[in-house]
Computed example of a mutant assay.
Amino acid sequence: MEKTVCGATTRSGTSCKKTPLKNGKCRLHGGKSTGPKDKEKHRESLKGNKNALKTGEYETISFDTLSEEEKELYERVSTDPATQVNGRYKILEIRTFRLMKRYVDELKKKKPDEELLESLEFALTRTDARAVDLIRENRSLSAETTDNDNGSLGTLVDIMADLRKERIRP
């Protein structure tokens, strides 16, 4: 004799009256998922998954996931003193590039999503503000470095001073 109702206990404490599937429960009460059977295959299927991606502002970016175009950009981004600040700045440049690309792609659509465009604009503004902060941080690090080492201009001034001293001596 087959069950004609699901019978699962609902939140209200009563029995579910829906028609059951093959496993004896309705589609809402089919039981807890046991997860993917092949964990490695599942892990591979998630690589590059952009289903939840909206603006990309908080997207995780690592070098091995960059496209060839983004790797070229990564190498071209101008850097100076502190490696960590420069690395973060490079990633922000790539993030800005991706945000701009999504913005342009959305604008090209017949009927662009105005909410998405606004979200992308806000994300670009926040990303730009973070870039400005990193530039300031880089400047302060550069200032500390040039205090210890006068830089090429300071070296030139020192050489000129030494030459003057030599010229004055008979």
Results as ranks from 00 to 15, higher is better:
A161G: 12
E115D: 15
P20Q: 03
D64M: 07
L116E: 02
E75T: 06
G30Y: 04
D128T: 13
P112H: 06
F122I: 10
R164W: 01
E144W: 00
L120W: 00
T127R: 06
E40K: 09
C26M: 02
E68R: 09
G7W: 01
T83V: 09
A82K: 14
Y89C: 01
M100S: 11
E69Q: 06
K25W: 15
K108F: 07
K17N: 05
H42Y: 15
G87T: 08
K165H: 04
G35A: 09
D80L: 15
V85Q: 08
T19E: 12
T125K: 15
T4W: 05
R11Q: 10
D105I: 02
T60L: 11
S119Y: 07
A143I: 14
K18D: 12
T125I: 14
T34F: 12
G154K: 06
S78I: 08
V132H: 12
K22C: 01
K101W: 01
D80W: 15
I94Y: 01
R11S: 13
D80S: 15
K54S: 05
M1P: 03
S15H: 09
I61K: 02
G151P: 02
H42D: 14
Y103C: 02
D162P: 03
K108T: 09
L163D: 08
L99F: 01
E68K: 11
T79S: 11
V77I: 07
R169M: 12
V5N: 05
V132M: 10
I135R: 08
L107H: 06
M160R: 03
G48R: 07
P20M: 01
E75K: 14
S45H: 04
A52H: 07
G31L: 03
